[in-house]
Design a protein around this nucleic acid. Structure first.
Length: 469
RNA sequence: GGUCCCAUCGUCUAGUGGUUUAGGACGUCGGCCUCUCACGCCGGUAACCCGGGUUCAAAUCCCGGUGGGAUCACCA
């Protein structure tokens, strides 16, 4: 069995969006699954729209996703001589010819055809003229008038095209630069790509490309066209559907493994399994179970998958991803046992790293910020006695263990006749500033004794001040 | 408009002629658990686009509608 060689060829005209990321993931996973090769190629032949910033943005996104490549990145802008050479081959073999018809003339031709219900195509005026190169001449490929071209698509099955649907398309512009369909084919041939997995917005290009492979005497790769990702309104995903760039998901606190899991599962299935680690994906992914219909990008499900990945992740791995989010909130916390113990109290209640960072703030604040509503509701005179008693009890404890803490609370309950909840809520507000937080015992264990007592005493002061004020 | 693709709960999907009162997940609704919020658990809601065939039998095969998407550049 021949080694699988796949590729991802983004054009650097913007950020890497989730649709592009998805086809990158499919190609990457398939290469990894088959122990093949994955090649990165930057399609920057459009000098006007391609930017260095976009190239960097794509690298950044790929790196965050953890998608690595075995060869490249190749830049098409640096391969112009190769394309020249192949254009000449086609010219020499008579499969291509110079055409001097002006764009205006062709536009008229097309408009007329369209208005009379005909096919808007080039009429082949220069086909047999055997024209020489001029500075306005383009090179056209001689497409067959008859016969059929068939795409053997591993995802969609066989797709048949009548060759008379095609016209003599341009493969080199008047400035000599090659056009997309030609460049792709030459690149894929010369890079040894034998498996082309791409969005199904490319199916209409494929017959042209197949004709080019044939004219160049090159073996056809395996084609697989994956259905598009649609927005909530069933139209092609675009800016108005909200977040598009994969790095935006990074900044919102999504885990790369979660995004990958979601993107792959959107359109691919493995029985009823929903959750996949990266390793599992590599092990289980195949082209066989990719669906044929387009899928709608569902933020809710992505969020849910992200929560699952946060729950499943090791605290130490989460820690390094969490640090930037804490920094963004003004806390420079280093990774380590303390951060990990903080994370353990938050991972089942955080859907994103942003959630988690927000929930973790009270652990790090020197000056606790209190929610006004929580203070009003729970730091009332009735809470004074239990909190004071608790301070007494905790002061006597040499160290905090769940068992010791339970005993301490129990004795406060007995002494005051209050139910646990009546004591826990004021304590929670005292310790976290909020009425919502991880479990009381967890918090007390993680915060050190000094901080707990300090915050409890601060709460007592607040209660006193409020009742006097 | 031409060409091409697609069609199972709101969404992602399982399903490849009988095992299906169509399964799972997200969402949603209700409940349990409970120191708050979550998590977890239990339960409910909800789909085979329509019409013809083929067959003893069709979500599954065929045809036709309808609907949605893609594409028709000296852009990629």
């Amino acid at each position: 069995m021949e080694q699988i060689i796949t590729r991802f060829p983004p054009s650097p005209t913007g950020y890497l969006h989730v649709g592009g990321a998805r086809t990158a993931v499919f190609n990457w996973l398939y290469a990894r699954h088959t122990k093949g090769k994955f090649i990165l190629r930057i399609e920057d032949t459009d000098k006007v729209r391609s930017t260095k910033e976009s190239v960097d943005a794509i690298f950044e996104a790929l790196e965050w996703l953890g998608i690595d490549w075995d060869e490249g990145p190749f830049f098409q802008s640096k391969r112009l001589e190769i394309y020249q050479e192949y254009i000449q081959k086609l010219l020499d073999s008579g499969d291509a010819y110079y055409c001097t018809c002006s764009p205006e003339k062709i536009k008229v031709m097309r408009d007329k055809a369209r208005s009379t219900g005909g096919k808007p195509r080039y009429d082949g005026t220069c086909r047999h003229l055997d024209l020489k190169k001029t500075d306005t001449a383009v090179v056209r490929f001689k497409a067959p008038f008859t016969g059929t071209t068939i795409i053997k698509d591993v995802i969609k099955g066989n797709i048949l095209f009548q060759n008379n649907e095609l016209d003599d398309f341009i493969i080199a512009r008047s400035d000599g630069t090659p056009t997309y369909n030609f460049v792709v084919v030459v690149d894929d041939i010369t890079m040894g790509i034998n498996t082309v997995i791409r969005g199904d917005d490319h199916v209409m290009n494929t017959p042209k490309q197949i004709l080019l492979y044939n004219a160049l005497n090159a073996p056809l790769p395996t084609f697989g066209h994956v259905p598009m990702v649609l927005g909530k309104d069933r139209s092609r995903l675009s800016k108005r559907h909200g977040a598009m760039s994969v790095t935006v998901y990074r900044d919102m606190g999504y885990l790369p493994d979660a995004l990958i899991n979601y993107l792959v599962r959107l359109g691919w299935s493995f029985g009823d399994q929903e959750f996949f680690t990266r390793a599992e994906l590599i092990e289980k992914f195949s082209l066989k179970n990719i669906g044929k219909s387009a899928g709608i990008f569902d933020q809710d499900k992505l969020l849910s998958i992200n929560a699952d990945h946060i729950k499943a992740a090791k605290p130490q791995n989460l820690a390094k991803n969490l640090v930037p989010f804490l920094e963004k909130k003004g806390f420079s916390i280093k990774e380590g046992p303390y951060l990990e113990s903080v994370i353990k109290t938050l991972n089942t209640r955080s859907k994103t790293l942003e959630d988690m960072a927000r929930g973790a703030l009270f652990y790090f604040q020197d000056e606790l910020s209190y929610e006004e509503k929580a203070v009003k509701k729970f730091l009332k005179p009735v809470a004074l006695e239990p909190v004071r008693l608790l301070v007494d009890k905790l002061e006597q404890l040499p160290n905090f263990t769940e068992k010791k803490l339970e005993e301490a609370f129990k004795s406060v309950m007995e002494a005051t006749g209050l139910k646990f909840g009546k004591i826990a809520q004021p304590v929670r507000v005292a310790l976290t500033g909020s009425s919502v937080s991880p479990g009381i015992f967890e918090i007390i264990e993680v915060l050190n004794k000094e901080k707990v007592l300090q915050r409890l005493n601060a709460a007592i002061k607040i209660i006193l001040d409020r009742s006097q004020g």
